[in-house]
Amino acid sequence: MSQRPSSAPDPLKALLQAQGLQQPSATFTAALTRQVVARYAAAPIAPYSAGTWLGKAILLVLGSFLGLVMYLLPLAKGGVLAPSLTAAVLGLGGMLWVFEHARRPQSKLGTS
């Protein structure tokens, strides 16, 4: 079974522990930390700015079209077109929201 160093006073253990662990130089530790972080920290999210702007433009056009349909067409005709337009606006809006808020940074750990 796994055996931990006993908790009873052990002079050899005390002597070794008084000596402590060897430490690498502070310069080395700082350089290693920087290297690990630079290599494996997740890159900040690059927003899909072009896609987001295009999506917002389409959303605006669809929204305006929906408004026009509701305002200009009589209820009988507008009632047929309005639900699909509303669904399109909501769907596209939802997709944009997911793109902007729900994406997580991709870590590079364990990938090489």
Binding site: T29, T33, V36, V37, A41, A42, A43, S107, L109, G110
Partner: peptide, 13 residues
């Protein structure tokens, strides 16, 4: 660290 958080990576080191 798996999520790429720099503080966690530095702390592990």
């Amino acid at each position: 660290a798996g999520q790429g958080q720099p503080q966690a990576l530095a702390q592990l080191v």
